[in-house]
């Protein structure tokens, strides 16, 4: 059980690294486009497509599993904190089960749409060029699957009382998240 948690945590770490790289790439890509346009009258073709259809989708959907592991999803605990431990833990398991159910819907619907877009070889137009975007649709079911895996592992670990292998303490300054 602990080993499963460790491997899951490793996958989350990898997703987090890829996402962080995309944050940096987004910055560099847009800055290069601005510089190219302003200084050399030569904007980078496809910047808005790359930013919207790739970086944004990766930064959000690959990261929802990371946020789940580190409990960064925003929730309201003012009422549950008034409860004694036991009912509070029951509600916590309930909330995670709801999360799993909802994200499963997201995963399935994301998957069916990705299949359609792949069959279509979906593209987006920017300027006079076309850019393929169908690949990016797969990031939604992939990210959702990671989030489900993390949440399901947490429920099982909580209910069985097993030692969790997840890395739940976020790095420094988690409270800066807003």
């Amino acid at each position: 059980m602990y080993q499963i948690g460790r491997s899951l945590s490793w996958v989350v770490k990898a997703a987090s690294f890829v996402g962080a790289i995309c944050v940096v790439l987004m910055m560099l890509h847009v800055t290069a486009d601005v510089a190219g346009r302003y200084l050399f009258n030569a904007p980078l073709p496809g910047t808005t497509v790359w930013v919207a259809n790739y970086y944004m989708i990766i930064v959000v959907f690959l990261a929802i599993g990371v946020a789940e592991e580190q409990r960064s999803h925003i929730s309201v605990d003012v009422f549950t904190d008034l409860l004694p431990d036991r009912p509070r833990n029951v509600l916590s398991v309930f909330a995670t089960l709801v999360t799993i159910a909802v994200v499963t819907v997201l995963m399935i619907s994301g998957y069916t749409e990705a299949v359609k877009k792949t069959a279509m070889t979906a593209t987006k137009e920017q300027g006079s060029q076309l850019f393929e975007v169908w690949q990016s649709y797969w990031l939604i079911p992939a990210g959702a699957a990671l989030m489900i895996a993390v949440a399901a592992y947490r429920v099982i670990a909580t209910v069985t009382g097993a030692r969790s292998g997840l890395n739940e303490a976020p790095p420094e300054a988690n409270f800066i998240n807003d």
């Binding site: 904007p43 910047t47 300027g127 060029q129």
Partner: peptide, 14 residues
């Protein structure tokens, strides 16, 4: 419009 701009030597901006 992007093709037009390229052809006439202007810079198409999205």
């Amino acid at each position: 419009w992007a093709r037009w701009a390229e052809t006439v030597g202007a810079v198409p901006v999205s």
